[in-house]
Design a protein around this nucleic acid. Structure first.
Length: 195
DNA sequence: CATAGGATCGCCT
DNA sequence: GGCGATCCTATGT
């Protein structure tokens, strides 16, 4: 039950970090209630060289500025005007790499998670998309964007779970058709048993 | 100031 | 599997 340290996120291979985040626990503490889920799907965004990345080509805007901070920072932004998407910034300060968390398996605070989702019981869809998991954990752009990930209200823990490499599937990323050839890169990682 | 488009979801058929 | 919702962000005039 260790909080992942800064060193985990400050490494320079965002694809490796995306793989290694599978099986870790994304935890929030909002209004005194702790909710958590095991990460089961991630995508790597490889900074300035990656056409799918918001910071492609070194683009700096008010929104992307957070991506240039050091590893272990939360990058939360609003997508389609509705969904808050949660990313972990990785690599050294000045290098805008990030991992999008796309799915979790609810583990703690189930009642609160169901209430936030407007569901009455757990299902495969409770927190199985990048927009639904942030709703389930109460992650909000205004409250969490730019925060460090080492203490409440938001952090990532290692609960000793190991995901066997042969159960990890690598596929192209979702919803980035605009990225040209980079749309084909196998930067999405999924725990097979969760699909 | 006006516009286009988006790292999605959920409901409908 | 198709489509509308919904509004922020970035960009251009």
């Amino acid at each position: 039950m260790n909080t992942l340290p800064r060193d985990f996120f400050n490494r320079d291979d965002v694809v490796t970090i995306a793989r290694e985040l599978l099986g870790k626990y994304l935890v929030t503490e909002v209004d005194g209630v702790r909710t958590a889920g095991m990460i089961t799907e991630t995508e790597a965004y490889d900074g300035v060289r990656d056409r799918a990345c918001h910071a492609y080509g070194g683009k700096r805007t008010k929104r992307t500025e957070v991506m240039y901070r050091q590893g272990g920072t939360a990058y939360v932004y609003l997508c389609y005007g509705i969904h808050h998407l949660f990313n972990v910034v990785t690599n050294a300060e000045g290098t805008p790499d990030a991992v999008l968390i796309r799915s979790i398996r609810p583990a703690e605070g189930i009642d609160t998670i169901l209430e936030r989702r407007g569901h009455t019981k757990l299902s495969a869809k409770t927190a199985s998309g990048p927009g639904t998991l942030t709703q389930a954990l109460g992650i909000h752009t205004q409250h969490h964007n730019g925060l460090d990930l080492f203490s409440p209200p938001i952090l990532i823990e290692d609960h000793g779970v190991t995901i066997a490499p042969n159960t990890i599937e690598a596929t192209p990323r979702i919803g980035i058709d605009y990225a040209g050839e980079d749309a084909l890169l196998p930067y999405r990682f999924v725990v097979s048993s969760e699909q």
